[in-house]
Amino acid sequence: MKKTFVVLAAVSLFFAQADAQYYYDRSKNPDKKIIEKTGRDFDTFYFLSWDNNTPLSNTNFVSSTSYLGTKLGFRKRLNDVDRLWAGADFGWGVYKEYFPFNTYTFGSRSLSTDLYDYVYSYNLSASIDYFIFPMEKHVTPYGGLNIGAAYDKFAQYYNVYGGASGSWGVLIRPEIGVLIGIKENASWRIKAAFHYDYSSNSNSDFGYKNFTNIGFQIGLVKMAW
């Protein structure tokens, strides 16, 4: 029994080694066809996107979709099979909502005003994306995950008065999207993606236990090598 186990382990190690040779030194494996790329071998890309977001947490404060936001980022290819890309994103967005003139009563005290609620959101994250097809294709769908830090500033304005408070938190952002080029292996592409953001930013003054939102971004991608 023990001998059988040792033999199985040795065989497993042998195949594992063979597999590693395929990925990292394909030229030494004559049985496998090496994919020859046409055109430039892009290994980096940069993007700038218009980001639209709808808040999901504490919608009593702000619930309107924000059309004021962008994302800037880059990705670097991690391996030669063209699928795994890592990088970083910087994103910002401003959420705002107007509440018409109304009276708010707390015990014996009443206050009447119209309110402008704002959330200023900034984040910086590390990202990793897996592309389903090789980057040479016209259309390259992907799924990704970002992890980083987020800063939210919550503000309320009324007449010349107001209050604001900010908080930091951890950001987790799963994302699915697609890069679309006008031809194969295009230098410029369109990026479209849906994302869900969870950040642990809490603020008791403004009633936030965390800040979550869903978003859609569309932008331009510049491939580089």
Binding site: L68, Y98, F101, S110, Y116, N159, V160
Partner: peptide, 24 residues
């Protein structure tokens, strides 16, 4: 974009005054 932190239009903000009342 980092410097971009828009605020409400000041003309809109002062259309109405804030009215606070309290009583015993």
């Amino acid at each position: 974009f980092t410097a971009c932190m828009p605020k409400p239009n000041s003309g809109d903000l002062v259309k109405n005054m804030v009215v606070i009342t309290d009583y015993n």
